[in-house]
């Protein structure tokens, strides 16, 4: 078989194929629900209902989407410049550690000064964590996929060490958990009485800022050029190395904000399980969003909905929650295939 570019893709092609990919994902999930001994339609209904069916469910989904918007943006920014940052998980934890270190009383400042300071310090920490593999790449030609992946394990062990050492809560009954943040270091709720904190607002602002950077600034243009064709970008006089470094700082900082928002917003303290893989899921979010910042918000809501819905479905009918992970991985693979097929036609020869 051969692939042939489609000169002018029809609307049916550009809309129909991605829709088909989603439909196939749902079909596969239904099949697995049947294997698990539950009626597929009710499983899908329960997922939808558990994700969006009530005010409580919807708030839960928005809360779950918040870190995913940050990690999704982090991955989207990096992938656009073809910097393969698979280490958003590590950068998230770096941001979370800084938040827990500065927010538990080390700095007794008013909220208006403290929160921006902590957020900036967290971003710096995340940026540094991604800077290491990026410099190894630009200086020594070390593949960043493997180094960012391996650093995830290193950073998680480092957090574990801190939580059993200097960051450990003396009142924590021996649990590896940090002390609670002081009230000035907590992100306030957007609407009093509703369980949704300003981390979500910050995530939306971050998406808008990234859109502006990508669409309206020289850096955005350079990052795109480096991603499309590194050799051509270099030939055109774009400083490829420095652009990759700037991309890394931006991407690592965004991922760290996920950790900041989880600790200062949702949880109020740092534990080793604040992220059930938000860094890795960010890759799915970014790919489903076609690396578009506003797409990331939509994709994060979808992905968060699948997770939250699957949790409540699992409690109701006992199908393992891993169905959510299967659905998302399937959606990722089928979607990249569908998107390619909107631009290429298969010729059997």
């Amino acid at each position: 078989m051969r692939l042939e570019p489609v000169a002018q893709p029809t609307l049916i092609r550009t809309i129909g194929l991605p829709a088909l990919a989603l439909a196939a994902t749902v079909a596969i999930a239904s099949l697995l629900a049947m294997v698990a001994g539950a009626p597929p339609l009710s499983v899908l209904g329960l997922i939808l209902q558990g994700a969006f069916g009530s005010k409580f469910a919807l708030l839960e989904t928005l809360n779950r989407a918040t870190p995913l918007i940050f990690t999704g943006l982090a991955v989207a920014v990096a992938f656009r410049a073809r910097l393969w940052n698979i280490g958003a998980e590590a950068q998230l934890y770096a941001g979370a550690v800084v938040t827990a270190t500065l927010g538990t009383g080390a700095l007794a400042w008013p909220s208006g000064l403290l929160l921006p300071s902590i957020a900036s310090a967290a971003m710096l920490a995340g940026a540094i964590v991604l800077l290491v593999p990026t410099v190894l790449k630009t200086r020594f030609g070390v593949d960043e996929v493997v180094t960012t992946l391996l650093l995830n394990f290193v950073v998680l062990l480092w957090v574990s060490m801190l939580l059993e050492g200097p960051l450990k809560d003396p009142m924590g009954m021996g649990w590896p958990k940090s002390a609670r943040l002081i009230p000035e270091a907590r992100l306030p709720r957007i609407v009093e009485g509703l369980r949704l904190h300003w981390g979500f607002g910050l995530a939306l602002i971050a998406a808008a800022v990234i859109w502006l950077v990508q669409a309206r600034t020289t850096l955005g243009y350079e990052m795109r050029a480096v991603g499309l064709n590194r050799a051509a970008a270099k030939f055109a006089g774009i400083p490829v190395g420095p652009v990759l470094i700037k991309t890394a700082l931006l991407s690592g900082g965004l991922a760290a904000l996920a950790g900041f928002s989880e600790v200062a917003g949702l949880k109020g303290s740092l534990t080793l399980d604040i992220s059930p893989g938000f860094g890795y899921t960010g890759i799915i979010v970014a790919m489903l969003a076609l690396l578009n910042p506003f797409g990331v918000v939509v994709a994060a809501l979808f992905v968060a909905g699948v997770f939250v819905g699957a949790d409540s479905m699992s409690r109701a009918v006992g199908v393992p929650t891993y169905l959510a992970d299967i659905m998302l991985a399937t959606a990722l693979l089928l979607m990249v295939l569908a998107l390619m097929l909107t631009r290429f036609r298969v010729r059997w020869a």
């Binding site: 169905l323 299967i326 991985a329």
Partner: peptide, 11 residues
């Protein structure tokens, strides 16, 4: 593939 294989296994 890593995500799919891991999730299918745990499921």
């Amino acid at each position: 593939i890593t995500m799919l294989a891991t999730a299918l296994t745990y499921f």
